[in-house]
């Protein structure tokens, strides 16, 4: 997993609530047996029409927006446990997803792939959305060490929660498997009980 420290970037806003993982990556694109390439089909059915042409109204097709921060709506990533949703966002180039509420499994999947889920208040999310929509060149700062997300132009900021263990993993690029494999003797002892 890649290390994560801090990011200063423009953002892509999608003001949609209850975005489920079937929308992030539809089931028919889950047939790959590796982790790469899912970005091409990120939000496939919202992004392309039946003739596979980009839909003009969808935010990923709007040339004004760019950057590695995705501003999502409330209750992002609900539904299917498919980690392909996190892979698709990451593969597309996002490093941070901001929402005022994440579905549990999606949040874990994101953290396990170096994609930082940043949970902010509804008001702060609305404020970020508005600023970025009115000026797409607006930059957002996300700093993992201080756990702060900030609008660069106004300095408006909010702190976000992340548990200390996951924070350390992200900062060092460790994953749980490294740790779990290191304690297999404890697991064997547990099994004997």
């Amino acid at each position: 997993m890649e290390k994560f420290t801090s990011i200063v970037s423009r953002a892509v806003p999608l003001r949609e609530e209850n975005v489920d993982t079937d929308q992030i990556i539809p089931a028919r694109f889950l047939k790959a047996t590796d982790r790469e390439g899912f970005g091409d089909n990120l939000f496939r059915d919202w992004r392309y029409n039946d003739q596979n042409e980009p839909k003009a109204g969808f935010v990923l097709n709007n040339q004004d927006y760019s950057g590695t921060i995705f501003l999502a709506g409330k209750n992002f990533g609900s539904g299917s446990s498919r980690e392909h949703a996190a892979w698709a966002l990451y593969d597309y180039g996002f490093k941070v997803v901001v929402s005022s509420f994440f579905a549990d499994i999606f949040k874990n999947n994101a953290l396990n792939n170096g994609l930082l889920p940043v949970q902010v208040s509804d008001d702060f999310l609305a404020s970020l959305q508005e600023k970025v929509e009115s000026d797409p060149s607006e930059k957002i700062v996300v700093d993992l060490e201080t756990q702060v997300i900030r609008l660069e132009s106004t300095g408006e900021e909010e702190s976000f929660e992340i548990n200390p263990y996951k924070k350390k993993c992200l900062q060092n690029g460790y994953d749980d498997i490294d740790y779990l494999v290191s304690i297999l003797d404890k697991v064997e002892e547990f099994e004997k009980k």
């Binding site: 498919r82 980690e83 999947n109």
Partner: peptide
């Protein structure tokens, strides 16, 4: 409960998961 593929890998590797109590 349902898990993602990285977690499937963890369970294959160790029969364990790192979990917070909900």
């Amino acid at each position: 409960f349902g898990i993602g593929t990285s977690e499937v890998e963890m369970v294959l590797a160790s029969q364990c998961l790192m979990q917070y109590k909900p």
